Amino acid sequence: MSHTQKNKTQLLARVRRLKGQLEAVERQLEAEAPCAEVLNLVASIRGAANGLTLELIEGHMQEHVISPLSPGNETSAAGAEELMSVIRRYLK
C-alpha cells in the first residue's frame, strides 16, 4: 500500500483546508478587503502548502528511498535522513 493511500484521510484533510483558505482569499478580494488581510491569508496558504509538501516528501522518502535499502547500506539511509532534516527546515 502506497504512503498516500495509508495517509489518505490526513492528506485530504490538508487539501480541504487549503481549498477553504483559497476560497477565503477569493472572498476577501471580492469584498475589497485591505491588502494586509489578504496577504496574511496568502501567507497562511503558503505555510499549509509547505506542510502538505513536506508530508508528501517525507512519505515518499520513507517508502521509496529508505525502506527499500538493503541491510548494510546504512550510509544511504543516513544520507536520506539528513536530506529530510534539511527539507523540514527549509519548508518551515
Score class of each variant (00 low, 15 high):
Leu56Pro: 06
Arg17Glu: 06
Leu12Gln: 09
Arg89Lys: 15
Glu74Pro: 07
Leu11Met: 07
His64Trp: 14
Val38Tyr: 08
Ser70Met: 15
Lys19Leu: 12
Lys92Gln: 11
Glu82Phe: 11
Tyr90Leu: 12
Leu56Lys: 02
Leu18Asn: 04
Thr4Ala: 04
Ser67His: 14
Gly47Val: 05
Ala43Asp: 12
Gln10Lys: 15
Asn50Gln: 08
Gly72Thr: 01
Ala13Met: 11
Glu32Leu: 11
Val42Gln: 07
Ala24Asp: 07
Val86Ala: 05
Leu69Lys: 06
Ala78Asn: 10
Glu30Trp: 15
Gln5Glu: 14
Ala33Leu: 06
Ala33Gly: 02
Ser44Gly: 07
Pro71Phe: 01
Glu58Gly: 01
Ala48Asn: 01
Ala80Asn: 02
Thr53Gly: 04
Leu69Trp: 12
Gln62Glu: 12
Ile57His: 02
Leu69Gly: 00
Ser2Trp: 15
Ser44Tyr: 11
Arg27Lys: 15
Leu11Tyr: 14
Lys92Gly: 04
Lys92His: 15
Gln28Met: 13
Ser2Asn: 10
Gln10Pro: 10
Leu39Cys: 04
Gln62Tyr: 13
Gly20Ile: 02
Lys6Tyr: 13
Gln62Arg: 11
Arg46Met: 10
Ala24Ser: 06
Leu39Ser: 01
Gly79Arg: 10
Ile87Phe: 09
His64Val: 00
Leu52Pro: 05
Leu22Pro: 06
Leu41Cys: 10
Arg16Glu: 10
Ile66Val: 04
Leu22Arg: 03
Lys19Pro: 10
Ala43Asn: 12
Lys8Met: 09
Leu39Lys: 09
Ala36Glu: 14
Val15Leu: 11
Glu81Cys: 02
Arg14Leu: 11
Ile87Asp: 00
Ala13Pro: 10
Lys92Ile: 09
Met1Asp: 09
Lys8Ala: 01
Thr9His: 13
Leu18Lys: 00
Arg46Phe: 12
Leu29Arg: 06
Arg88Ile: 00
Ser44Glu: 13
Ser2Lys: 14
Glu82Met: 10
Leu52Gly: 04
His64Glu: 09
Ala49Gln: 06
Val25Trp: 10
Thr53Ser: 06
Leu39Ala: 04
Glu32Pro: 09
Gly72Glu: 00
Ser85Thr: 08
Ala24Trp: 15
Thr4Gln: 13
Glu82Ala: 04
Ala80Ser: 03
Gly79Thr: 01
Ala36Gly: 05
Met84Pro: 05
Leu83Gln: 08
Ala43Glu: 12
Leu39Asp: 02
Ala24Leu: 09
Ala24Thr: 06
Ala31Gln: 08
Leu22Trp: 11
Val42Glu: 03
Val25Glu: 02
Lys92Pro: 09
Arg16Cys: 00
Ile87Pro: 02
Thr75Leu: 13
Met84His: 02
Ala48Arg: 05
Lys19Asp: 13
Asn40Asp: 12
Gly51Cys: 00
Lys19Tyr: 14
Glu32Val: 07
Leu12Lys: 08
Lys92Val: 07
Ala80Trp: 12
Leu22His: 05
Glu30Val: 08
Ile66Asn: 00
Glu63Phe: 10
Thr4Glu: 13
Leu52Ala: 01
His60Cys: 05
Gln21Glu: 03
Val42Asp: 00
Ser70Gly: 12
Glu63Ser: 02
Ser70Gln: 15
